[in-house]
């Protein structure tokens, strides 16, 4: 049963570039969304807070796979573009989904920075923007690290869904291979899992490291 392993690897690896590019793009997009939405939820303008809350609760309340299918049909409508590539739909769906989760991480980390820090920076007459950029965010970032690590692994796992909307990632090639070699099913999917695990290893390492940094924490 092992003789087909090199063949399988050679075949599915064709999707490796797409899998990693979707992961990187979706992760970058969700980090951006996390900060935008997380900080918007702390805005003192009610309507901005309200709109972001709807976004966050909607994407946290429904599941990624539903959002992916939904956006596949809704994005052309919402953006007035008729041909949005499946790659982009995948990136947008995953980015919006995990951006919503991560925005909560950003929000709670910012809130948990000691209030005295804000007071000290007011006393030094910093503007709101300076307070956030120079004092609060640098300390909040440290607290966010482990959760960003954890969610990055979740994002990676989420990228496997894009084959469902026709993106040619490693799972897509795995499915194609299996459909003409039915008896190899277990080996095909096991190899895919191993590939995903190898990509995940540095993330696992980074999130453990982030945990240590966060534990040192921000003392007064």
């Amino acid at each position: 049963m092992f003789e087909s392993v090199p063949d399988i690897i050679r075949y599915v690896i064709q999707g490796f570039g797409v899998t990693t590019s979707i992961f990187l793009a979706a992760a970058a997009f969700s980090y951006v969304m996390a900060f935008v939405a997380g900080l918007c939820r702390l805005s003192n303008i009610t309507i901005i807070r309200g709109i972001t809350a709807v976004y966050v609760e909607f994407f946290r309340g429904t599941s990624l796979i539903v959002q992916l299918f939904w956006l596949q049909y809704a994005i052309p409508m919402l953006l007035g573009i008729n041909i949005a590539s499946a790659w982009w739909i995948g990136v947008i769906a995953i980015g919006l989904n995990y951006g919503a989760y991560l925005s909560e991480v950003v929000r709670t980390s910012v809130i948990s920075v000691d209030k005295g820090q804000t007071e000290a920076s007011i006393a030094l007459n910093m503007t709101r923007f300076q307070r956030m950029r120079l004092v609060i965010l640098p300390q909040a970032l440290r607290l966010m690290l482990p959760e960003f690590g954890n969610y990055s692994i979740q994002i990676l796992k989420g990228t496997s869904l894009v084959s469902l909307i026709g993106v040619t990632d490693i799972l897509y090639f795995g499915d194609v291979y299996r459909s003409s070699n039915l008896s190899e099913g277990a080996m095909v999917y096991f190899i895919l899992l191993i590939i995903y695990f190898i990509i995940a290893l540095p993330l696992i390492y980074l999130s453990k490291k982030g945990e240590k940094i966060a534990k040192k924490g921000a003392a007064t």
Partner: peptide
Amino acid sequence: STPPLIQIFFVYY
């Protein structure tokens, strides 16, 4: 840390 979707396929197919 690996995708549940592929795990489902692994079990089913």
